[in-house]
Nucleic acid binder design. Sequence first.
DNA 1: CTATATAGGACAAATAGCATCTTATTTGTC
DNA 2: GACAAATAAGATGCTATTTGTCCTATATAG
Lengths: 147, 147
Amino acid sequence: MRLTRAAEYAVRCVLYMSRQPEKSVISRKEISRNMEIPDQFLGKIAQQLARAGIMEILQGARGGLRLFRAPESINLLEVIEAVMGEIFLNDCIMSPRSCRRSPTCAVHSVWEKARSGLRQTLGDADFRQLSMTALEGLESACIPGDD
Amino acid sequence: MRLTRAAEYAVRCVLYMSRQPEKSVISRKEISRNMEIPDQFLGKIAQQLARAGIMEILQGARGGLRLFRAPESINLLEVIEAVMGEIFLNDCIMSPRSCRRSPTCAVHSVWEKARSGLRQTLGDADFRQLSMTALEGLESACIPGDD
DNA sequence: CTATATAGGACAAATAGCATCTTATTTGTC
DNA sequence: GACAAATAAGATGCTATTTGTCCTATATAG
């Protein structure tokens, strides 16, 4: 019931880019260095974010990453789901066929409520807000693992 | 970002027990058979639920499981957390030491909101309600994996 | 043409999830 | 006390996922 490392990295990456001048191209190396993300791993993550229409990747010399949209139109939910897939709390929500009586199962409705609440909260957080509050260099996102 | 199988089994187990006459002792085998839970695995799960004060385990012949409290005083959240540990969405919520500036990090506050909302929803669902809506034999809880 | 980037597939180590096996222990009944 | 019916608990194994790394290919600016 928790974020993967990859999703955390994705959030850090978009957060870093949100703080740069709009439409600027930022090299993967710069991001990975500043946000403590393994460079090659960030490459894979960036591809997923690109496929989700969040950023674009420019190849070749002077290439790098560029946000595809303004930070205020990007939210936490879509960044996370771009990397982890759609958030769901249990199997039966995801594949109703495997649940024999979802329409009348009380547990089912709780899952659904919990899931939609969670997605709502994450969907309401856009990166303009996030980047404005988190201003200082490296420490703009939580950096786990030192513990 | 999803329930483990063990947590799903725990929910099914408590749900089954909530439907039986209060304070009755139910053998593990009966529960595992009726709710499609591997018997030995249920043994482990029952121990966790017992440690959490949700049920008690009676050893020996005619032994089995018995709810320690009335179904209305048991909620989804505690059953899940008994098995999975406390729900948290990312590392930095769990171990604030590893997060260098949690008080001022905007992302941090979103995690906290999402987490508390999720726990609230699950905490509001008690097993009296759940067992009343889910009445029919086997199919009282979602049974994944057939898909 | 060359230097600088990313692309993308293969691979590997670590961890977590999902049990199962085996042996021991507890308890009720005859 | 002996036996049968249950659970307890530790060890073990299999699989999938996560978290990367490596290597070769490809794209682009100058």
